[in-house]
């Protein structure tokens, strides 16, 4: 069981006008738990997720997963590391429009292993309530599209799942379903970190982290 540790993360954007997105964030994310990162718009939730996933490079600080410091690796090294250990779910679903639901899910595994496993992809989709995976993303509802995106994340059997406002484009019923799925994933031993505005849904997670101006204000 690996711990995802952030140590004094700081990220500043802009050259002339500087905006501090994350300011001295330190925390340890434990496996088997779900975390909600909440805060108003511009509080640095998305930046924090990108830093923890190794997508963005911090100006100061480091991220350690197990005993590996993410930023000791190069860009492609971190990409491979992400494919092997992490997964991402986005607010806008970001499903590839010309691929079927099945192929979108398969893409997740292909990036990790260079192979696909349609049978396993179908099973995961079915578990998430998608029984006909042959359709293109636009043929599904918003809730279904987000469940396909979650299936794309799950097929790689990730240890940490990052979800950036996963319910931002969904109605309350679908939002509740998605949160139930995500918190359920954590029960299986994975670490789930969700950035959200919705305090009600955030409260269903094991831990709620409050960000303000890029700083962790309380848990």
């Amino acid at each position: 069981m690996k711990v995802l540790k952030a140590e004094g993360l700081k990220k500043v954007y802009g050259k002339k006008v500087k905006t501090v997105a994350v300011d001295g964030f330190s925390y340890e994310f434990m496996p088997g738990k779900s975390y909600a990162v909440v805060g108003p718009s511009g509080s640095g939730k998305t930046t924090l997720l990108y830093l923890l996933a190794g997508i963005e490079v911090p100006d100061v600080g480091r991220v350690i997963y197990g005993d590996i410091a993410l930023f000791s690796m190069g860009d492609d090294g971190r990409a491979r590391f992400r494919a092997d250990h992490f997964a991402f779910v986005f607010q806008q679903f970001y499903l590839i429009p010309y691929l079927s639901a099945l192929d979108n899910v398969s893409m997740g595994l292909y990036l990790k292993t260079g192979k696909t496993d349609p049978k396993r992809a179908r099973e995961i989709l079915k578990t998430l309530g998608i029984t006909d995976p042959s359709k293109k993303p636009y043929e599904y509802s918003g809730g279904e599209q987000q469940r396909i995106a979650i299936a794309r994340a799950l097929i790689t059997d990730p240890e940490v799942i990052f979800a950036d406002e996963p319910t931002g484009n969904l109605d309350s019923k679908n939002s509740a379903t998605i949160f139930k799925v995500l918190t359920g994933i954590a029960v299986e031993g994975r670490t789930v970190i969700v950035a959200t505005h919705d305090l009600d849904l955030a409260s269903t997670c094991d831990v709620v982290l409050h960000l303000k101006d890029g700083r962790l204000v309380n848990t």
């Binding site: 996933a53 997508i55 860009d75 492609d76 990409a79 491979r80 992400r82 494919a83 092997d84 992490f86 997964a87 991402f88 986005f90 970001y94 590839i96 893409m107 997740g108 990036l111 990790k112 794309r152 790689t156």
Partner: peptide, 16 residues
Amino acid sequence: RWEFSVLRALGATRWF
């Protein structure tokens, strides 16, 4: 751009 960014976020290397 967004499609390539998603793939990168999911673990695609620059070479891919």
